[in-house]
Design a binder for these strands. Structure first.
Lengths: 108, 108
DNA sequence: TCCATATATGCACATATATTCATATGAACA
DNA sequence: TGTTCATATGAATATATGTGCATATATGGA
């Protein structure tokens, strides 16, 4: 791993990073990722769990798929989705920590 | 710290998280954050460093300020900005790792 | 006070994107 | 083959947002 950084990010890396973080900039995708962090789920389970339009969920799953944050397998008619990146949970936790700190909760 | 999670995020937390990650979903803000990770800089230094319009930089600094990701102090006419969140570097590193992994670089 | 410099900000515009609707695809099964 | 169920996707629309221009604010100096 990098010991302590080179001094500039390539233009391309900046755009790639922005695209990566775009996955987390929408509440629906956060909910999907968090739900899948609990356990793998098929589309209709997510639809019920998040109480949202099936089309909206599918569109967002496609976004997450294209960024390799989730993967899926077909089981008959259903598609079972699960997380495909070990960093998702850590990222979410860091976000949560930032918000708690910002709002003045040092403790649970 | 949380030992291992409660099973759902509040609606509000989801939106707060999305807002937090919005800070990282734009290449300009990534560049600003990365530059400030190297060292604190005033606005005109950022303008030169990133070769961008002063207005664009100021607008983005405001976004980052409002999310408490950067802070600044006034020194005469200039405003010296610096990072205000210890997680920024780690977040960026995790993004970089994800991209390298996705693109098949396991090593540097 | 007048001017130059540094930064911030309102407005307008262009682009990105989240959602819904309608429909397509595809699997299971009668 | 025809039907139903699960999911995906294209088109349309509404909303969000990044940027540049013009200008405002504030500081230091002549």
């Amino acid at each position: 791993m990098s010991d302590k950084k080179n001094y500039s990010l390539s233009e391309e890396m900046c755009y790639d990073l922005a695209d990566f973080f775009k996955n987390f900039d929408d509440a629906t995708r956060i909910k999907i990722l968090y739900a899948l962090f609990q356990r793998e789920m098929c589309v209709s389970e997510l639809v019920n769990e998040l109480d949202m339009n099936q089309s909206a969920i599918s569109h967002q799953l496609r976004v997450l798929r294209q960024s390799d944050l989730v993967k899926f397998r077909k089981e008959g008619k259903t598609a079972v989705y699960s997380l495909d990146d070990s960093h998702v949970a850590t990222l979410l936790e860091m976000g949560i920590e930032h918000i708690r700190h910002k709002n003045g909760y040092e403790e649970e």
